[in-house]
Amino acid sequence: MRAPSFRWHAATSLADAARALAAGGPRALLLGGGTDVVPAIKRRQYVPELLISLRQVAELGRLEPHGASLRIGAGVRLGALAADDRLGVGHTALRRAAGVVASPHIRNVATLGGNLCLDTRCNYYNQSLEWRRAVDYCMKAPAGVALAAPAGGTCWVAPGSPRCWAVSQTDCAPALIALGASVTLVSAEGQRTLPLADLYRDDGMTWLTRRPDELLAWVDVPAAARSTYWKLRRRGSFDFPVLGVAAAVELAGDVVTAARVVLGAVASHPVVVPTESLLGRPLGDDAIAAFAELATRLAKPLDNTDYQLGWRKRVTRAYVVGALRELRGDDPALLGVLARRQAALIPA
């Protein structure tokens, strides 16, 4: 499978990248580590006219304290991030999520920015051109392969639906939203900072609120007293999440004073679960069970990823319970078989 031809620009600075992106128009595509872009262009999910490489942009590779937060450049590689000592216990959810993306080889190249901007995925979309042609394409990847798809076409997962249901399967986004991260986007026009949750849209076709001329420059990540990330996938390596549960809590004694729980891979965007019911009391079994019920109702998986649909919905409850029990300090050995899949939780 060969990549199509494209024009190439190796950006040398953030300003240069922003300028190239603005000048490149709608068929310019940013290249972080390329671990999602390269398979996608081989399959002609998109055919960019211009690729803008961010590899040489030194500003994007920085990782440094910024006030009480950690500022992490979009070009930081996930493998290096997961191993970086500047991520303390306060950033456990991020360290875990970055450390379970894809496989070690991919993490050596994959960037945080690419992970946060990762295209949504679907069994009908992440296929070769020939496969997609054989089913007459779907709405997200129409026949006239382009970067921005025209309106129309069928969603093969929900053929009656006017929208695309491709799934957000980034591991780091739920973890970073749970930690309360904000993201800074830079364009030739200037820059703006927004809560990371606001970067995402509940739409498989246009999954980011990023303007086409903006690039993700860095994220600011506050620390949380306790946080975790639980990932469900068939194999312990390679596979995208079929469910991700990120959770962060602050406790005063054993009373919860703040909590954020985010579900990945159950919708076209990371799903933020309202946590009011957890606040002002300990993480008791009943509170956790009621909360897990609410989270499960918000999870709307469709039959377009690995694993059977009904089970994916049921396992959401078990994962939310497990993650919150871990955060209240339960012995990992007592958390059961699902916990044993969280490699980082159970030391080898």
């Binding site: 499978m1 990549a3 190439w8 190796a10 290249l31 390329g34 671990t35 390269v38 398979p39 081989k42 399959r43 690729l51 490489s53 590899r55 493998g79 894809a102 496989s103 070690p104 080889h105 991919i106 050596n108 190249v109 390679f238």
Partner: peptide, 25 residues
């Protein structure tokens, strides 16, 4: 497509998948 590791090489000492890396990089 990045799913097997048969193409692994070391770039600056680190294992990477050569099928996912554009030579231009």
């Amino acid at each position: 497509l990045g799913e097997c590791g048969a193409c692994a090489v070391l770039v600056d000492g680190k294992p990477v998948l050569s099928c996912l890396m554009l030579a231009l990089e």
